[in-house]
C-alpha cells in the first residue's frame, strides 16, 4: 500500500471569540489517496469550510489550528512557515470557492491574472504563461479560450466565472484541490457541466479532490468516499454508496430521509427535530443526541468509533 497523499489526524481548529472558544473543527481525521474524490457533507456551521481552510493553512486570527496533524506527501503542514505554505498553495494544493470573486481580480483581464499566477511560481515567460492559461481555460470548457484571455471577469456569466476560477486552480496541475461549494450558487444545468468536467479532470490527471457540499446528491454522483460532518466532527465516513445505502449514524439516516427526493410527493417528509447546536460551549457527549431518535443515557458520554478506519461512525447506537 502506498502512503496517502493527505493524512489528517485529530485536526482541531478553534476561534477565540468574545463569547468563548468555538471549536469549529473538533478532532477530524481522514486520509485521501492520489486521484481520489472525497466528499465532505454536512449542514451549515458544521465546520466544512474551516476544515478546508485549515488544509491550506488559510485560517486567520481569531482562528488557529489548536492541534493535530496535516501530512501532505509526508510533509507536516501544521506549523509550516507562511512562505512555505504559500509556495505549496497554488502550485501543489489549490482551492476553489463558492464565490469565484474570491479568486478573481475585477480590474485585470483573465489572461493577465492567470499569467501572474503562473509567474508567481516561476512558470517562464509571457508567451509560455499565455499558452498555459489558454490551455487551462480550454480544459474547463470555455469556448474561444485564446480570445477570452483578454476579457474581464465581469464579461463572463456566473457559470463561466466559476470555470475561470477552476482553470486558475488547475494551472499548475496541483495534486490536491479543495473545492468549497463551488457549484452551490450555479444553476443545475451549469452545475452538471462542471461536475462532469471535474470528474474527468480527477480521473485524467490523478488530481485528488476534497469536494465540500451541503448536497448529498451532488456528492453521491461525484465522490468515491464521503465524510459526514456534524458539529465539528466527522460522524460517519466510508465509500459513498455504502454510506448512502446503509448509513451507520442516525444523523446520516436523518439527512437522507429529509430529502424530498427520498419521500413520496405530497406526503410528510421524515424530519430531524430541532436544529444544529451552537459550537460554543458544546456539552460533553454526542452533539447529535438532543435530536436523535436513538439517544439514551449512554449518549451523555463521548461516542465511540465503530467500524474501521475506512467505514466508521461515531455513535453509541449505530444502525446496522
Amino acid at each position: 500500500m502506498t502512503a496517502p497523499l493527505l493524512d489528517v489526524r485529530d485536526l482541531r481548529t478553534e476561534f477565540h471569540t468574545r463569547a468563548g472558544v468555538l471549536r469549529a473543527v473538533n478532532g477530524v481525521s481522514f486520509t485521501l489517496a492520489r486521484g481520489e474524490i472525497l466528499g465532505l457533507v454536512g449542514e451549515s456551521g458544521s465546520g466544512k469550510s474551516v476544515t478546508g481552510f485549515s488544509l491550506l493553512g488559510l485560517v486567520d486570527p481569531p482562528g488557529r489550528i489548536a492541534g493535530g496533524s496535516i501530512s501532505f506527501e509526508g510533509q507536516e503542514l501544521v506549523g509550516l512557515p507562511p512562505a512555505r505554505l504559500r509556495e505549496l498553495r497554488g502550485k501543489r494544493i489549490a482551492m476553489i470557492f463558492q464565490d469565484p470573486a474570491a479568486t478573481l481580480n475585477p480590474v485585470l483581464t483573465v489572461g493577465a491574472q492567470m499569467a501572474l499566477a503562473v509567474q508567481a511560481h516561476g512558470g517562464g515567460g509571457d508567451r509560455a504563461a499565455r499558452d498555459l492559461a489558454a490551455r487551462s481555460l480550454a480544459r474547463v470548457g470555455i469556448p474561444d479560450a485564446v480570445t477570452r484571455l483578454d476579457a474581464y471577469p465581469h464579461e463572463f456569466s456566473g457559470g463561466m466565472r466559476q470555470r475561470v476560477a477552476i482553470a486558475i486552480a488547475l494551472l499548475h496541475q496541483p495534486d490536491l484541490i479543495v473545492a468549497d461549494e463551488p457549484t452551490t450558487a450555479l444553476d443545475v444545468s451549469i452545475q452538471a457541466q462542471i461536475l462532469a468536467e471535474m470528474k474527468a479532470l480527477a480521473r485524467e490527471n490523478g488530481t485528488a479532490l476534497v469536494w465540500i457540499s451541503h448536497d448529498l446528491a451532488t456528492v453521491s454522483s461525484l465522490a468515491d468516499r464521503v465524510l459526514v460532518m456534524y458539529a465539528g466532527r466527522i460522524v460517519e465516513s466510508g465509500p459513498v454508496a455504502q454510506v448512502l445505502r446503509a448509513p451507520l449514524h442516525p444523523y446520516t439516516r436523518g439527512l437522507l430521509d429529509s430529502l424530498p427526493a427520498m419521500g413520496r410527493p405530497g406526503e410528510m417528509l421524515a424530519q430531524i427535530p430541532g436544529s444544529t447546536p451552537s459550537l460554543l460551549s458544546l456539552p460533553p457527549g454526542c452533539p447529535f443526541a438532543p435530536r436523535c431518535p436513538r439517544a439514551d443515557a449512554a449518549c451523555a458520554q463521548d461516542p465511540p468509533v465503530v467500524g474501521t478506519e475506512g467505514r466508521m461512525a461515531l455513535c453509541h447506537h449505530p444502525l446496522t
Partner: peptide, 9 residues
C-alpha cells in the same frame, strides 16, 4: 441535470 442520489454505487 439534477444530481441523483446514487444508492447502488
Amino acid at each position: 441535470s439534477v444530481p441523483k442520489l446514487s444508492l447502488d454505487g
